[in-house]
């Protein structure tokens, strides 16, 4: 039996009177890559924001490593080992690449761990090492995505929450980014992924949840759902 890392139960979120999440439940086990797929406005980003503490749910529980974190401040969730790479990368444009990475290590006290992770990030993303002194705002979109992911790795996460990592990138870069996500699992990390590019997401995931207008409508193993006629039609464009 695999170890449960994140368990979300009956999560309900409102924006004023708008019911954005209508009681969704899902879980992520240690070592998995789990994808949430769905159309624009289905509630994917809302789900991630609620898990990492940027939005407070109205009802439901979020158990991370056995602790209910639905009232835990976002900055404390980071030091518990859950790190969120937000949609649109949100890197600090006026800081250098190196300073951005160090921001990721903000809650890390262990200096050795920081330099170890820095080495790992530079090995994964040699481009970032070449450009370490450059202002992050001068990087290309793909490099900025790499920086956002590298910055998250410096927090030494157990669970990496990725929101639309492929957004706005060329097909070649998209493949590169997904290859990197796969290496996260090889490095012993767990990944919760939100993607518009359902095909790509399913190709690297263990399990998939399909979100439609605030509810989970389908869930299952990626290898099985990829052959599901309805999923194919609605999300894979076949």
């Amino acid at each position: 039996m695999s170890e449960r890392l994140l368990e979300v139960t009956d999560l309900e979120v409102y924006y004023g009177v708008i019911n954005a999440l209508k009681g969704i439940s899902f879980h992520v086990d240690k070592g998995e890559i789990v994808s949430l797929i769905g159309a624009n406005g289905a509630g994917k980003t809302t789900t991630l924001h609620t898990i990492t503490g940027l939005i407070r749910p109205k009802n439901g529980s979020i158990i991370y490593k056995g602790v209910d974190i639905r009232r835990t401040p976002a900055h404390k969730i980071v030091s518990m080992g859950m790190v969120h790479v937000p949609e649109g990368r949100r890197i600090f444009q006026n800081l250098t690449v190196y300073e951005n990475l160090m921001m990721g290590a903000y809650s890390q006290k262990d200096k050795n761990k920081i330099s170890e992770n820095m080495e790992y990030v530079f090995k994964q993303f040699p481009r970032l090492e070449e450009r370490r002194r450059q202002l992050a705002g001068t990087l290309s979109g793909g490099e900025q995505q790499m920086l956002a992911m590298g910055r998250a790795l410096l927090a030494d996460p157990e669970l990496i929450v990725l929101d639309e990592p492929s957004m706005g990138l060329s097909p070649l870069l998209v493949s590169e980014i997904f290859d990197i996500v796969k290496t996260f699992r090889e490095a012993g990390k767990t990944v919760l992924l939100v993607e518009q590019n359902a095909k790509k997401a399913m190709s690297i995931s263990d399990r998939v949840y399909v979100l439609e207008t605030g509810s989970i409508t389908t869930e299952g193993k990626a290898a099985e759902l990829i052959h599901d006629e309805r999923i194919k039609k609605a999300y894979l464009g076949e």
């Binding site: 900055h75 980071v78 790190v83 969120h84 937000p86 949100r90 006026n94 800081l95 921001m103």
Partner: peptide
């Protein structure tokens, strides 16, 4: 440095554990 980060993007800074 954290002040610079917060001034640039408060939510992103929060996600860094600041």
């Amino acid at each position: 440095r954290a002040m610079v980060a917060v001034s640039e993007d408060r939510d992103a800074a929060l996600l860094m554990g600041i």
